[in-house]
Design a binder for these strands. Structure first.
Lengths: 197, 197
DNA sequence: GATCACATACCGACTGGTTAGTCTGCCGGG
DNA sequence: CCCGGCAGACTAACCAGTCGGTATGTGATC
């Protein structure tokens, strides 16, 4: 039993990450003590500092995970072989679904980014920017093709849509009247309708 | 010199509120110590706890101020004598302008709401809800009149727009390429375009 | 296959520093 | 002479990170 799994089946580092994610989303980064995290994960501080350099590293790891996931999915949709209208619609709807599916990560992401040290913050911003630009390229492609209206700068369009995604963690409740997919379809629809020439 | 204005001309409570607003927006609520606030306001802890019951009261006061402001302005636009299309457009644009004008308050509002105690949080949510419902009523009015599409539930439309407002504090920079009014016009335009039947 | 060397995985008491809020008291005007 | 308005030292609690220690596994050597 030296496989870092203890009584539970999942490895300690993942248990720590899961506990941290839930607690950060619940109480916020600053209000979550390292002690609470290790207790929720069923280990002690020694274990945490064995696997992670600092409390901040834990937060950054949460970011890195969700960023990788969303970037991969966006790339897949963007590079698909379909009319630009469909590709944008599917990408727009997908980011809504994956955000809802990882609502904890999302609220941490949007609420706690400023808790990262300048360097780590810069790195996260860079990856975030790459995502934004890939999405913007889709909008611009449609605008050049005349399929989308050019009345609004593409940058603003992207921020408009991401604003609504960002906002999901504030109002979306799994037990609400709308399913994930319904919300995603509606939001993607609003974007596409706004872009009609 | 017992008029609570000290060397400066503004009264101490307002100086404290202003300092707290700036610091909360800059470093976040938890990372701002009461000591820093009183130093920035040029007083000491005695003064702060003379006027405010707690650090949290300071935060709530920031909320209350911005909520009152936005509610008043929304009511004015909503009750104006103009076609529903115009009223919604102006209300939608106005909330963008006032949010940008008070970007500090806005980022505190959206990032630190969960730092309030359950009771105060409930109270803020209630006022927030009132605002949301007034805005939703505008959308519904237009939908009933057939001026706006009914494809999307009005609640979702409101959350869509407020998402973009919420998001402003993340990306808007005063020295960017777009003025406040331009951003406001574009965002209101996107909303109205999305609502075209 | 027994012994030794070393590494990995973790425990938990401890430290140095920080913080919100309190309390006693001074000071000047009405 | 009294009270609002404030100063500033003080306290009790908390917290991130450290460090010495233990237990278990792994590979080399004889």
């Amino acid at each position: 039993m030296a496989k870092a799994t203890d009584g539970n089946g999942t490895p300690v580092p993942q248990r720590l990450l899961a506990a941290a994610t839930r607690l950060f989303a619940e109480r916020g980064y600053d209000r979550t003590s390292v002690q609470e995290i290790v207790e929720a994960a069923g280990v002690t501080k020694g274990a945490l500092y064995h696997y992670f350099g600092s409390k901040e590293d834990l937060l950054q790891e949460v970011y890195a995970r969700v960023l990788r996931l969303q970037q991969d999915r966006l790339d897949a949709y963007a590079n698909a072989d379909a009319p630009i209208e469909e590709r944008l619609r599917e990408a727009a709807a997908d980011v809504v679904v994956t955000t809802i599916e990882n609502l904890d990560d999302a609220s941490i992401f949007f609420r706690s980014m400023h808790h990262l040290s300048p360097e780590k913050n810069k790195q996260v911003r860079m990856e975030r920017r790459r995502y934004h630009e890939r999405f913007r390229a889709l909008v611009e492609e449609g605008q050049r093709a005349g399929v989308f209206s050019s009345a609004t700068p593409a940058d603003l369009v992207v921020d408009y849509h991401f604003g609504s995604v960002h906002h999901l963690s504030t109002w979306y409740r799994p037990d609400g009247p709308l399913s994930q997919q319904e919300v995603a379809d509606h939001l993607a629809d609003l974007l596409l309708r706004a872009l009609r020439p």
